[in-house]
Simulated assay, not measured.
Amino acid sequence: MNIAYSPCPNDTFVFHAWAHGLVPGAPKLNVTYADIDVTNGLAAEGTGLDILKISYAALPWVLDRYALLPCGGALGRGCGPLLLTKGGPLDAKSPAALSGRRVAVPSERSTAYLLFRLWAASHVPGGVGEIVVMPFNEIMPAVRDGKINAGLVIHEARFTYASYGLHMLVDLGSWWESDTGLPIPLGAIVARRDLDADAISGWIRSSLRHAWDNPQASREYVLGHAQELSPQVAKSHIDLYVNDFTMDLGDSGYAAITALLGRAAAEGLVPSVDPALLR
């Protein structure tokens, strides 16, 4: 089967066993490693990939061809994106100071972007100025070097932004959780609708159980694809993003996804989604 997921520690941890033939009965995987903004595009283009890791924000554009799987993704609490600044006029931590400013985001079809737009709609008078899309690994250096006024960051950046001399203006995950009481939907696993979703979900869960039962088995694979991260940062990344929701979304997981996409559709950020297509 052809699969695409990111080289981030949470994805390589989850899929290590399956990718290495350690899941009994599972077909061989042909893996494409790509940033989630790339996989979002691959899913939207209908390139023939069987399984992909995409952002929940990209779901409305692909649900006609891909089904959301109830496992394998990234959804949780205390793991949301951060909005960072260098300091100066924005160091007062006043959201109003973002009015008319340049803000870098990793994708316009990402949960991080949706959370930022939903938050900004009620906290930034007049709205922000220019939105600049750039690879997430380039955002912190761009903020540090003054090329942009603020940056929206994800993944391991929450563990490393202080080393760039940056400041957190808002934790958008904390805002979402306090506003809704729901966890944060980040990355989804989708599979072609003509495939056996139950079987694929079973193989993913078996791969995850193997990773949890044998935490050292995936270490070389994880670190080999996260070469800029220290082992401790990679472990922190896994501990944060791989959790009970990775094994099963459950009612609160689906409620969070429905709430995010419903709010985003009301703001005109994504097409409306029939909740029945999410299960």
Rank of each mutant, 00 (worst) to 15 (best):
A266R: 13
L261G: 12
T160P: 07
V190R: 04
A19L: 06
L208E: 06
A57G: 11
L182M: 13
P24Q: 04
P27E: 10
N214E: 07
A120D: 06
P135N: 09
Y66E: 02
F159D: 04
G146T: 10
R193A: 06
P60A: 02
A226M: 11
D194G: 03
V222Q: 10
I184T: 15
Q216I: 10
I200G: 07
T47S: 03
D179I: 04
H155F: 12
D198F: 01
G80F: 14
S6Y: 12
S122F: 11
W203V: 05
S218M: 09
P81Q: 04
A97I: 05
G181Y: 15
W175R: 07
Y241S: 06
L115E: 13
P271G: 03
V222P: 08
L52H: 05
Y33H: 13
G87I: 03
S207Y: 09
L49V: 07
Q227F: 14
H16D: 07
Y5M: 08
P185G: 04
G127L: 02
R77I: 05
L115C: 07
H123V: 03
F15I: 00
R192H: 06
G224N: 12
A43K: 04
P183R: 14
G100D: 03
P135S: 11
A264D: 04
H167P: 00
G72A: 09
G146N: 11
W119G: 09
K93D: 03
G181C: 15
A234I: 02
Q216K: 15
R65I: 00
L69H: 10
R102C: 06
L22P: 01
L172W: 00
I184F: 09
N214H: 12
Y161F: 11
